[in-house]
Design a protein around this nucleic acid. Structure first.
Lengths: 216, 216, 216, 216
DNA sequence: TATGAATGAGTCTTCATTCAT
DNA sequence: TATGAATGAAGACTCATTCAT
């Protein structure tokens, strides 16, 4: 109020307002890190609220249920990335091999290497107990992801780069190692004494083997 | 617990006695199926006891805590299989490609296609809450499994069938899809509306791509 | 609060001012209908505020607590009716039987058949938790009501129409069915599958039996 | 075990067992007194359990829900009385006037003058919030009660003692004051400063007026 | 050994009330 | 005055674990 230049004449938000707009994001971030760290069921909503710096009641102002909170976490951190991704691939220049390699690398950078990588473990772990979450994940994440991969493979086949493989099976071959990698990283990978997988080398290896296998 | 699984014990004790000794095994079997079906947290010990035909109190006579029960389930259903497996591979006749294919198929038949396939999901889901379990799984399952795969690949390289690939990476390439398949089958695969993966075709595809990628 | 209900105030203040003074009345009306419809405990203050077209905070500007709001509702809707009623009976022409009949009918029209009929249920339901309210109701409603009935019966005895009954008991006989009717209407009467009492016939019957019983 | 005489050879219950059989009754009694004293919603299950001398969890061993507990209270204290009552009236000797008088007096002794008299207030107070309870009360209490009254009146008409009144209305006239009396006793009647109704005189008066009204 | 009655800590969710704006 | 974001106390219900029998 005291010093708004005319350029910002559009009523600057009051402090309270600004907090309100930031809240969902802060809660989502807190929820993601705790859900991933301790599992969905084992995380108390109170912890999430505390980590976001608010009280338990406030959380329920923004999310109707703990389950809703999880859905929002998924949407925010994964589902929302697809539109931009699709766009990006529409305009990709280069061979389909490069495209596939790029896709997997960039998936790693944007999801696999972020806290969001813990989500698949979460979802799979709770799938039976919360079927609605599993369905949601399917619709919002798996299906768009599979569609994206399929487009890349189809493009390679159309251009004569790839063999005429069975697409329905081949897509699994692409995303299976990615999902595996995320699961591993967020479970066994945390074991101090365990086998450590180097993600970048793992991905390169997967792409390498895969391309060896499907290129003509 | 210390002796061999009572399921395989053929002893001359009269029925009463035998039942007593069979108890832990029945509880273990009940626990496996319920843990896999409903998840560890969502399974009540009373259900396990009921399915095993005993009362809640009896279960605690054999297992100190619910967590102990889970550990025993893992030990009993996976770790114990390796010795026989190693033996079998020592005497395998045939090419290394055949050996790899055989290994993956037989893994599917003996674990992937049984209730035991639900165990990795259990372990990963509880890994952070029970680090001891994760470590146990590492030592008793992952490491022997990786060693087995490494032997097969090494055999192929030695015999000139396979390229001189980086073994440390390559082993991941082999077991990643298997673990993925088990996880999928026991989570998203249960979604009625979800993408269904045909396990046998999936494995064949994996082997196919893999061999295309690594054979000379 | 101290002045007469703003609903009846016709003053020359401009609209803004008038709205301000109208607020408590609107809140009271909203509170009455919701308390009666859903019960005191089950009505959220936010709903009351919303129905009155203000925000939750505003309600607390006018009423210190939810309980205070209930007290105001009772005061406003019942206690205030008695003066006019007393006046009316001072000038009644006709037999005492007619007077009794008229009294019960007109009570039905002015209270029993309005949302205010829900108040006794409210008061009785909360009587133990808020003894103050019960006392208030006693002083402001029950006692004036009983006094009114007693006057009618006394008039009948004096005029020789009625037997010399025990007045202390007889008054109960008059108002008991009325209170019962209000309670029934606002509780069991709402049960779709329940016994429905036709209020007018019920009252006529009561008066009929009563007059049969007390007239000479 | 140690000293069971042959006469009691039918295995005497162990202490634990005996407790178990007593528990529901103890809980029911505790629930009745607290529900009546403080209202259903305002009574915490933990208080009920404590008053019955058990822990919160134990209560849920015997009653699935707080609402179930209330239903059991109603059944135990009112609904269950009807069979015996019906039986009694089948064999009643005397005039229908006496029968009616007897019915109301004995209702007072067995319900009105016991803690169970608080139940109608409970039910009416919670009717909207728990429609299932209201329906239950209707079916289990109101309807049998009304049927009983109707039989008495019909008997009087058949024997020529009573006028040919409208039965549907007349039954209300009988039970309305009883329900009123119970409500009053458990709400306004508790007000130290309030009008006190003497139940026996009230009932006598009701019967007196009623019989004056309906006998030929 | 086996039972199952009893326990009570633990968690989500609601809502009257406060208070910064 | 008016707002509505924030609070946090409260309460029903669950379930692993214990222990008297």
């Amino acid at each position: 109020m005291s010093s708004a230049s005319p350029l910002f004449a559009i009523d600057p938000l009051h402090k309270r307002e600004r907090r309100k707009q930031a809240r969902p994001g802060e809660l989502l971030q807190a929820a993601l890190s705790l859900f991933v760290e301790k599992g969905f069921a084992a995380t108390r909503v109170e912890e999430v609220a505390a980590l976001a710096g608010v009280s338990k009641g406030t959380l329920f102002l923004y999310f109707e249920t703990k389950e809703d909170l999880l859905k929002a976490v998924i949407r925010e951190n994964i589902a929302n990335l697809f539109p931009a991704w699709n766009e990006e691939f529409n305009t990709f220049k280069g061979s389909s091999s490069e495209m596939l390699h790029y896709a997997m690398r960039s998936w790693w950078e944007r999801i696999g290497n972020t806290p969001a990588s813990g989500i698949p473990k979460l979802v799979m772990g709770e799938a039976q107990n919360f079927p609605e979450i599993a369905n949601f994940y399917h619709t919002e994440v798996i299906e768009p992801g599979v569609a994206l991969i399929r487009r890349i493979l189809q493009r390679g086949i159309d251009s004569g780069e790839f063999r005429k493989i069975d697409l329905d099976q081949a897509v699994h071959t692409v995303y299976a190692p990615m999902i595996f990698l995320m699961m591993w990283k967020n479970s066994m990978g945390l074991c101090s004494s365990g086998i450590q997988i180097d993600p970048v080398r793992f991905i390169d290896m997967q792409v390498d083997v895969l391309l060896h296998g499907i290129t003509i």
